[in-house]
Design a protein around this nucleic acid. Structure first.
Length: 287
DNA sequence: GTCCAGGATCGGA
DNA sequence: TCCGATCATGGA
């Protein structure tokens, strides 16, 4: 990976196994917006525009300091994913075939509170609406960063709200779960520093103390915010995939990077569904 | 009108 | 312990 500073931009060359599109569209995050092939997002109150051009990754209007302190960790750029991709290919032929075409997903290092809150909102919901609700949560209760951008509201701020206050974001029955999560985080029933140290089973046990957080959401938080690459969230789609193509198998079939495998399965399946609807499907590795 | 969405909880068997 | 109904909301 080569880092070049040019005209207020940070330009990254020679990154192996990275696709911005795959990374941001694979269902692990909800606050990125794609406008004319450029991605706009907010992380830790920092606004960013990032895009790929001529095989280079460009962070627009970004200092080297911000890149080093925030973005290279957020996008997990210092990790060698070729080892992960090789490991996954060895374990499973379906995954191996998928990886021939798609090999650029990176597991982001997202903020634990934002991830927890977002995936509580995700339950029994669809992605466009999850994005809408998360965006509304920020607009109504986050700090204003500029003209039309807001930070993700802290648990301390959410904690002071009532269910009625939250009605405005249209999260429905999830309001009480969001409040429960904020309360647990503020009073340290759920201590993120502790979770970072604990083994995955114990960490899940603590996260599920939150009302409205079960196995799926806690696995999402562990994978997308704490980078436990063996965490394995099973949603309705992964459940269908496992039932159809991996009957009788568990996360263990995919090895120590099961979470990454899960991410490819989810992403690949979503693409297949879309292509089937558009009638543009070519190869389907599951069949 | 019916079904479904990156689920979890609750009550009854 | 297991299983089905239910939870708001909006798009298909």
């Amino acid at each position: 990976m080569d880092i070049i500073q040019e005209n207020n931009n940070i330009i990254i060359e020679n990154i192996c196994n990275f696709s911005l599109d795959q990374t941001l569209e694979c269902g692990q995050c909800f606050r990125w917006e794609n406008i004319e092939n450029k991605y706009y997002g907010i992380v830790k109150n920092k606004k960013i525009c990032v895009y790929e051009h001529n095989n280079k990754l460009i962070f627009e209007d970004t200092s080297l300091e911000d890149f080093n302190n925030l973005w290279r960790n957020y996008f997990d750029l210092d990790r060698d994913y070729s080892e992960i991709v090789e490991d996954l290919s060895r374990n499973n032929t379906i995954i191996k075939n998928i990886l021939k075409e798609y090999y650029g997903i990176r597991i982001l290092n997202q903020d634990p509170w934002e991830t927890l809150c977002s995936f509580i909102i995700s339950q029994n919901n669809n992605i466009p609406r999850i994005k809408k609700i998360v965006s509304s949560l920020c607009e109504n209760f986050g700090e204003k960063i500029d003209e039309d951008n807001y930070s993700f509201p802290s648990p301390e701020i959410i904690c002071k709200l009532t269910e009625r206050d939250l009605d405005i974001i249209k999260a429905g029955f999830r309001n009480k779960y969001i409040l429960s999560a904020a309360e647990c985080v503020v009073n340290k029933t759920v201590d993120f520093d502790e979770i970072r140290r604990l083994k995955i089973l114990k960490a899940e046990e603590i996260l599920t103390k939150i009302k409205g957080v079960g196995p799926k959401i806690s696995q999402c938080v562990l994978l997308y915010a704490f980078h436990r690459l063996n965490a394995f969230p099973i949603d309705v789609w992964i459940n269908k995939i496992m039932h159809k193509y991996f009957r009788g198998e568990t996360r263990k079939s995919f090895g120590k990077y099961a979470g990454v495998a899960q991410q490819y399965l989810y992403y690949y399946y979503s693409i297949i569904l879309r292509k089937k609807q558009e009638n543009t499907i070519e190869i389907f590795y599951f069949d």
